[in-house]
């Protein structure tokens, strides 16, 4: 079994690959869309540029994943503009709107997301798909900087009472949605992703590793994580209470905020009856 030749894939392989790539690409794409809303509105010029940089990176990553989907005969135009909003597989964490002017939300969201991203890439670096392994290697360096940026802000906001309170409010709102990062699109396909060696950790393992990282770290900043966790027999942190939101993102169910955002981001495309998405640069190889 090999992913070298995209024309030589069995149905189960195609499905697993498509699911994995849409999770990866859609997360990055939608998060970048949301980050872009901070453009010229961030608290300082420096933070504005920093987040714009992150958004630009994430858009580039989305393009890298959508490009691999091209092997499965998906065109970028269809993926970005022609797709039904219900076909997007991103976590609901990345689609939620920012409460107006709430920089703590942007910081915390980035921290929760990029912590998960780091673990996810660790599990993809030895992927059986050569293009995935290759791309992860390139992307990882940029992601390290994203996480560092989020952590820097997080520590500084948490140091003041007002900032800590804002972070707590954002945490209460965002944490259940962050848990959907580790939700399956469907159990069978997700099992195949690991089985076929596309990713070498299950969603459950990634979720546990993530909890074991972010929960102690947030608690050390005097923030209260709004779910009950316990330590299982293998010393891993697991969520006990079922606190997941109704919409899980991964299975195609989304909050109304996504429908609005999708409508907004496809608006110009529909209005101008564009033939293809605008490209400023050629594809990176």
């Amino acid at each position: 079994m090999s992913f070298e030749d995209p024309d030589d894939l069995e149905e189960r392989e195609r499905e697993a690959l498509e699911t994995l790539l849409k999770r990866l690409g859609d997360d990055e794409f939608v998060l970048a869309e949301r980050y872009t809303e901070w453009q010229v509105r961030a608290p300082t010029l420096e933070s504005d540029l920093a987040l714009a940089n992150v958004a630009q990176d994430e858009l580039g990553h989305a393009r890298l994943w959508y490009d691999v989907l091209g092997d499965l005969d998906f065109e970028e135009r269809d993926l970005v503009y022609e797709r039904d909003p219900g076909d997007f597989r991103h976590s609901t964490l990345v689609e939620l709107p920012f409460p107006e002017g709430d920089w703590a939300d942007a910081v915390l969201r980035s921290y929760l997301y990029d912590s998960a991203e780091e673990l996810r890439f660790d599990a993809l670096v030895d992927s059986s798909h050569p293009k995935i392994a290759d791309r992860v290697e390139k992307i990882r360096q940029e992601e390290t900087y994203h996480l560092e940026h989020a952590r820097n802000w997080l520590e500084r906001l948490a140091a003041g009472e007002d900032g800590r309170q804002r972070l707590q409010d954002a945490l209460d709102r965002l944490f259940p949605h962050a848990l959907t990062l580790f939700e399956p699109a469907d159990e069978e396909t997700e099992a195949a992703v690991v089985d076929l060696g596309l990713r070498d950790a299950t969603l459950e393992e990634l979720g546990e590793a993530w909890l074991s990282t972010v929960v102690p770290s947030l608690e050390s900043l005097d923030l209260e994580v709004p779910v009950e966790t316990r330590t299982d027999e293998e010393d891993a942190l697991v969520v006990t209470a079922a606190t997941l939101p109704e919409e899980r993102g991964r299975d195609g169910t989304h909050t109304d905020a996504w429908v609005d955002l999708h409508d907004e981001l496809t608006h110009t495309y529909r209005e101008l009856e564009r033939e293809a998405p605008t490209k400023l640069m050629g594809d990176r190889e």
């Binding site: 420096e46 940089n53 560092e148 820097n152 500084r156």
Partner: peptide, 17 residues
Amino acid sequence: NVHAPDREMARQFAAIQ
């Protein structure tokens, strides 16, 4: 130049800008 509250943030902002 960059505006930053401390050296660590200044280093990061400088790297970005």
